[in-house]
Computed example of a mutant assay.
Amino acid sequence: MSSRFEELDWQPTPLGDLTLRRRTEPAVGVEVYEVKLGDEFLMSSLFTVAEEDLATLGLAAAARQELDVLVGGLGLGYTAVTALRDPRVRSLTVIDALPAVLDWHRRRLLPVSAALMDDDRTELVVDDFFARMRREPPTGAPRYDAILVDIDHSPRHRLHPSHADLYTADGLRSLARHLKQDGVFALWSDDPPEPEFTAVLAEVWTHTAGHLVAFDNPLTGGVSTNSVYVAW
C-alpha cells in the first residue's frame, strides 16, 4: 500500500491480471474503487451513473409486475443493486466469468457488496455469459424478463474476440431465446450510440432505443458520456 493506493486483490485470469484497488481521489476528496484488467482500466466507483441507468432504463421497458432479471457482468455491482431497488424484481441472477469478482462481493470489499449479498433475491453464478447465451436453454431452465449486460467496452470494442458473435443479429437471436416473450435486452457501452448496432437490434426486436447518458466528470471538470441500448 502506498500513501494513495491500496491493492485489495490481485488475480491472474485468462483475460489478463485482474486488480481491485482503493484510493483517495484528491480532486473530490472521496474514496474510489477501481478495477484494472492488465493495463486497462475497466471501471471506477467515481463513475456509476450509466451502470445504474442500465438497470433503470432496462427495467423501465419491462411490462410485468414481477420480474426475473439476469445481469451479465457483475463488476462493482452498481447495475445489480440498482435492479434490486425496483420492487417488481423477484429474482436477480448475476453471471460473471471471473470468480474473483464474485468473491470480492462475498467478502464485502466494495461499497454495495452488503446490499447485494444480503438480499435473498440475489444469486451469483460463475459462468461464461457469452457461451451461455449461445446455448439453447435447457428444458425447464428459467427465462428472464430482462437481460442487462455490462461486460465489453462497446459492441465494437470487446474484451475478447470470442465475444463478437453476441453483437450480430444471429447472436442476439440466441440471447433472445433466454428471454420471456415480452422480455427486454439492455446493454451498456462506453461509446456513443451507434446507428449500425441499433439497426442490428432492430432485426431482432420491434422497439429499440440508444440512450446517451451524460454525467459530471470531476477529473476533467467537464461532462463525460456513456450509452445504454434498450430493445424490447
Rank of each mutant, 00 (worst) to 15 (best):
T19F: 06
L20V: 10
R21E: 05
R21Q: 11
R22A: 10
T24H: 04
E25D: 15
P26N: 08
G29R: 12
V30S: 12
E31R: 14
V32R: 06
V35G: 13
K36T: 15
L37H: 04
G38M: 08
F41I: 09
S45P: 06
L46F: 12
L46D: 10
T48H: 07
V49D: 11
A50D: 08
A55S: 03
A55L: 01
T56E: 01
T56H: 01
L57D: 02
L57W: 00
L57H: 01
L57P: 01
G58F: 01
L59R: 00
L59D: 00
A60M: 09
A61H: 00
A61D: 00
A62G: 05
A63Q: 13
E66R: 10
L67W: 03
L67I: 11
L67V: 15
D68P: 01
D68L: 02
G72A: 10
L74F: 09
G77E: 04
G77N: 04
A80R: 04
V81M: 02
T82D: 05
A83G: 13
A83K: 02
R85N: 08
D86I: 00
V89P: 01
L92A: 15
V94W: 01
D96C: 15
L98Q: 15
P99T: 08
H105G: 01
R106G: 10
P111V: 04
V112S: 14
V112L: 06
V112F: 06
V112G: 14
S113V: 14
S113E: 07
A114L: 04
L116A: 10
D118I: 04
D118G: 10
D119A: 11
T122K: 06
T122L: 04
E123D: 14
V125K: 11
D127K: 05
D127N: 12
D128F: 09
R132N: 15
P137D: 14
P138D: 13
P138S: 13
T139Y: 11
P142H: 08
P142K: 09
P142Q: 11
D145P: 06
A146G: 08
L148W: 02
L148T: 13
V149N: 09
V149R: 09
V149H: 08
D150H: 09
D150E: 08
D152L: 02
S154A: 06
P155K: 07
R156H: 10
H157A: 12
P161L: 02
S162P: 03
H163T: 06
A164Y: 01
L166Q: 00
